[in-house]
């Protein structure tokens, strides 16, 4: 057993260089996924450790009211950030339901995006809020709309030499309603059975904007395009809620696994999205 290679870059530039120099090494940050049962699995060849890399951490407002979150920002910082509470409250809500304190102290938004599990807890929120992923490589920096980022079961648009640098959440319309629901195996420290996040906006009694992100109902986090189409342009109320639920039945084929069943997943995500539409239909002030 040879020792694992290890480098701890002090800057994004160093990290990108290390990634290019060691294409077979893993990028490690909060390690909440990569080190699970580590003694039972083969060790990686080497590690590029970006934990607490200052340039990758922090939450800041950027141009025009968008919020930029460094990839190595742990969930605990998202939970406690006033800026996130104001601009992306459903991201804070999702973060608060990730694992528990210990996982929130280590797990990061970049890790969630990079692992790209179909049950990644923040990923439906990034879809609903139309986030962008910022990637750096020796070739420069590029921005990928998050909706194009997951490409299959744990596969992504990330190139072999790229590093996830930040997630940017654009400013939402002030009248938009943000909604979030995780149904997990239990109340905390739980893997999701289904997750749904939505941004819904009503003007003059009709839905004018609808983005719905879903988790744990497909091989990757997905937008519910059919349900969105059923909502946009439709009037508020039960009929639209029912139409959105019906559209989900047509577009989703969830699976049965050790955490839940296909019928439960479909029925529950339908109920939750239906509830979102009803909540957004009610005249109460946006929360």
């Amino acid at each position: 057993m040879t020792a694992t290679g290890y480098v701890r870059p002090a800057s994004i530039a160093e990290a990108v260089a290390a990634r290019a120099a060691h294409p077979d090494w893993i990028v490690l940050c909060g390690a909440t996924d990569l080190m699970v049962e580590a003694p039972l699995r083969p060790a990686p060849v080497g590690v590029v450790d970006v934990w607490a890399l200052a340039e990758l951490c922090g939450i800041a407002e950027v141009d025009g009211g968008a919020v930029r979150i460094g990839a190595a920002t742990p969930w605990r910082d998202v939970v406690t950030s006033p800026l996130i509470a104001a601009r992306a409250p459903i991201l804070a809500a999702a973060a608060r339901e990730i694992g528990a304190l210990q996982i929130q102290a280590r797990g990061t938004i970049g890790g969630n995006v990079g692992t790209s599990s179909p049950v990644g807890d923040s990923l439906p929120v990034l879809l609903a809020l139309d986030a962008t992923v910022e990637l750096a490589s020796p070739r420069g920096t590029r921005r990928v709309p998050y909706r194009d980022y997951p490409t299959g079961y744990r596969t992504t648009a990330l190139a072999a030499d790229e590093l996830i640098v930040a997630i940017t959440i654009p400013a939402a319309h002030p009248g938009a309603r943000q909604l979030w629901r995780k149904v997990g195996t239990r109340r905390a420290q739980s893997i999701s059975k289904i997750m749904a996040a939505a941004l819904l906006r009503v003007e003059a009694g009709r839905f004018v904007e609808a983005r719905i992100g879903l988790g744990a109902v497909a091989n990757r986090p997905i937008r519910a395009a059919g349900a969105e189409a059923a909502i946009v342009g439709a009037p508020v109320g039960e009929a639209t809620a029912d139409a959105a639920a019906a559209a989900l039945a047509a577009e989703l084929t969830p699976i049965t696994d050790v955490r839940s069943t296909a019928p439960y997943r479909l029925a529950t995500v339908q109920q939750v999205v239906r509830r979102f539409v009803l909540e957004a239909s009610s005249p109460s002030s946006p929360d």
Binding site: E37, R186, R187, A188, Q189, I191, V258, R259
Partner: peptide, 16 residues
């Protein structure tokens, strides 16, 4: 046992 991990063979937490 198909769910032989603490993640999947769950027991109640403080929050439950």
């Amino acid at each position: 046992v198909a769910n032989a991990s603490m993640t999947n063979c769950i027991v109640p937490t403080f929050a439950d």
